[in-house]
Amino acid sequence: MAGTFQLELVSPARLLLSRAVEMAVIPAAEGEMGVLPGHAPMIVALRGGVISVTEGGQVTERLFVGGGFAEITPDRVTVLADDATPVASLSKALAATTLAAAEAAMADAQSLTPEKRDQAMATLLSARAMVVTAEAP
Protein backbone atom coordinates (compact mmCIF):
# COMPACT_ATOMS: atom_id res chain seq x y z
CA MET A 1 0.00 0.00 0.00
CA ALA A 2 1.66 3.14 -1.14
CA GLY A 3 -1.01 5.79 -0.85
CA THR A 4 -1.92 7.78 2.19
CA PHE A 5 -4.79 10.03 3.11
CA GLN A 6 -5.20 12.91 5.50
CA LEU A 7 -6.69 11.91 8.84
CA GLU A 8 -8.04 14.59 11.10
CA LEU A 9 -9.36 13.87 14.55
CA VAL A 10 -11.02 16.75 16.35
CA SER A 11 -12.90 16.99 19.59
CA PRO A 12 -14.88 20.08 20.63
CA ALA A 13 -11.97 21.19 22.78
CA ARG A 14 -9.10 20.74 20.36
CA LEU A 15 -7.54 19.27 17.26
CA LEU A 16 -6.03 15.94 18.31
CA LEU A 17 -4.55 14.55 15.17
CA SER A 18 -3.94 15.80 11.67
CA ARG A 19 -1.56 13.90 9.45
CA ALA A 20 -1.25 11.58 6.51
CA VAL A 21 -1.85 7.91 7.37
CA GLU A 22 -2.17 4.66 5.43
CA MET A 23 -5.18 3.18 7.07
CA ALA A 24 -7.59 3.94 9.86
CA VAL A 25 -10.07 1.63 11.50
CA ILE A 26 -13.02 3.54 12.88
CA PRO A 27 -15.86 2.23 15.02
CA ALA A 28 -18.86 3.11 12.86
CA ALA A 29 -22.34 2.74 14.29
CA GLU A 30 -22.95 -0.40 12.27
CA GLY A 31 -19.61 -2.11 12.71
CA GLU A 32 -15.92 -1.45 12.54
CA MET A 33 -14.79 0.05 9.31
CA GLY A 34 -11.34 0.07 7.80
CA VAL A 35 -10.66 3.08 5.63
CA LEU A 36 -7.97 3.07 2.96
CA PRO A 37 -7.10 5.88 0.56
CA GLY A 38 -9.65 6.38 -2.20
CA HIS A 39 -12.64 5.34 -0.13
CA ALA A 40 -16.05 6.33 -1.46
CA PRO A 41 -17.40 9.50 0.15
CA MET A 42 -19.42 8.69 3.25
CA ILE A 43 -20.73 10.28 6.38
CA VAL A 44 -21.03 7.85 9.25
CA ALA A 45 -22.06 8.04 12.85
CA LEU A 46 -19.65 6.53 15.37
CA ARG A 47 -20.26 4.51 18.48
CA GLY A 48 -17.90 4.30 21.42
CA GLY A 49 -14.79 2.43 20.41
CA VAL A 50 -11.19 2.58 19.38
CA ILE A 51 -9.77 4.29 16.33
CA SER A 52 -6.56 2.66 15.23
CA VAL A 53 -4.22 4.39 12.89
CA THR A 54 -1.83 2.46 10.66
CA GLU A 55 1.33 3.98 9.29
CA GLY A 56 4.12 2.08 7.60
CA GLY A 57 2.35 -1.22 8.05
CA GLN A 58 2.06 -0.84 11.83
CA VAL A 59 -0.56 0.41 14.20
CA THR A 60 0.97 3.60 15.51
CA GLU A 61 -1.84 5.14 17.41
CA ARG A 62 -4.95 3.96 19.21
CA LEU A 63 -7.50 6.41 20.53
CA PHE A 64 -10.73 5.80 22.32
CA VAL A 65 -13.68 7.90 21.13
CA GLY A 66 -16.99 8.12 22.90
CA GLY A 67 -19.11 8.57 19.81
CA GLY A 68 -19.30 11.22 17.13
CA PHE A 69 -19.22 11.42 13.37
CA ALA A 70 -16.80 10.84 10.56
CA GLU A 71 -16.71 12.33 7.11
CA ILE A 72 -14.88 10.23 4.58
CA THR A 73 -13.75 11.45 1.19
CA PRO A 74 -11.25 9.76 -1.14
CA ASP A 75 -8.33 11.81 0.16
CA ARG A 76 -9.44 12.88 3.60
CA VAL A 77 -11.10 11.51 6.72
CA THR A 78 -12.42 13.89 9.34
CA VAL A 79 -13.49 12.43 12.64
CA LEU A 80 -15.59 14.65 14.87
CA ALA A 81 -15.34 12.88 18.20
CA ASP A 82 -17.47 13.74 21.21
CA ASP A 83 -14.43 13.10 23.33
CA ALA A 84 -11.22 11.28 22.60
CA THR A 85 -8.45 9.81 24.74
CA PRO A 86 -5.37 7.87 23.75
CA VAL A 87 -5.89 4.26 24.83
CA ALA A 88 -2.66 4.30 26.80
CA SER A 89 -3.90 7.02 29.11
CA LEU A 90 -7.33 5.53 29.66
CA SER A 91 -7.79 4.65 33.31
CA LYS A 92 -9.85 1.80 34.67
CA ALA A 93 -11.25 3.94 37.45
CA LEU A 94 -12.54 6.57 35.04
CA ALA A 95 -14.06 3.90 32.83
CA ALA A 96 -15.78 2.35 35.84
CA THR A 97 -17.31 5.65 36.96
CA THR A 98 -18.44 6.42 33.42
CA LEU A 99 -20.07 3.01 33.22
CA ALA A 100 -21.81 3.48 36.55
CA ALA A 101 -23.15 6.87 35.46
CA ALA A 102 -24.34 5.44 32.16
CA GLU A 103 -26.09 2.54 33.90
CA ALA A 104 -27.86 4.93 36.22
CA ALA A 105 -28.92 7.09 33.27
CA MET A 106 -30.21 3.97 31.52
CA ALA A 107 -32.28 3.04 34.54
CA ASP A 108 -33.74 6.55 34.60
CA ALA A 109 -34.44 6.48 30.90
CA GLN A 110 -36.75 3.44 31.08
CA SER A 111 -39.75 5.68 31.57
CA LEU A 112 -38.83 8.21 28.88
CA THR A 113 -39.42 8.40 25.15
CA PRO A 114 -37.87 5.78 22.87
CA GLU A 115 -35.40 8.36 21.51
CA LYS A 116 -34.18 9.17 25.00
CA ARG A 117 -33.85 5.46 25.72
CA ASP A 118 -31.86 4.94 22.57
CA GLN A 119 -29.58 7.77 23.55
CA ALA A 120 -29.02 6.34 27.02
CA MET A 121 -28.38 2.94 25.47
CA ALA A 122 -25.75 4.42 23.16
CA THR A 123 -24.06 6.07 26.12
CA LEU A 124 -24.13 2.81 28.03
CA LEU A 125 -22.64 0.85 25.14
CA SER A 126 -19.93 3.46 24.74
CA ALA A 127 -19.13 3.24 28.43
CA ARG A 128 -18.94 -0.57 28.23
CA ALA A 129 -16.57 -0.31 25.29
CA MET A 130 -14.48 2.09 27.36
CA VAL A 131 -14.25 -0.40 30.22
CA VAL A 132 -13.26 -3.21 27.88
CA THR A 133 -10.62 -1.04 26.25
CA ALA A 134 -9.26 0.13 29.56
CA GLU A 135 -8.89 -3.40 30.87
CA ALA A 136 -7.26 -4.93 27.83
CA PRO A 137 -5.15 -2.26 26.19
Binding site: E30, M42, V44, A45, F69, D82
Partner: peptide, 26 residues
Protein backbone atom coordinates in the same frame (compact mmCIF):
# COMPACT_ATOMS: atom_id res chain seq x y z
CA UNK B 1 -19.35 14.99 -3.69
CA UNK B 2 -22.36 12.75 -3.14
CA UNK B 3 -22.08 11.08 0.21
CA UNK B 4 -23.28 7.75 1.37
CA UNK B 5 -24.75 7.74 4.83
CA UNK B 6 -24.54 5.14 7.53
CA UNK B 7 -26.98 4.73 9.25
CA UNK B 8 -29.52 6.94 7.45
CA UNK B 9 -29.38 10.63 6.62
CA UNK B 10 -32.14 11.40 9.08
CA UNK B 11 -30.51 9.53 11.92
CA UNK B 12 -27.17 11.22 11.44
CA UNK B 13 -28.81 14.58 11.15
CA UNK B 14 -30.82 13.99 14.30
CA UNK B 15 -27.59 13.39 16.20
CA UNK B 16 -25.58 16.02 14.39
CA UNK B 17 -27.93 18.94 14.93
CA UNK B 18 -27.87 19.08 18.73
CA UNK B 19 -24.12 18.64 18.56
CA UNK B 20 -23.86 21.50 16.12
CA UNK B 21 -25.97 23.69 18.34
CA UNK B 22 -23.70 22.79 21.23
CA UNK B 23 -20.68 23.78 19.20
CA UNK B 24 -22.22 27.14 18.33
CA UNK B 25 -23.04 27.86 21.93
CA UNK B 26 -19.67 26.61 23.09
Amino acid sequence: AMYEYEPSEEEILAALLPQNLGVQVY
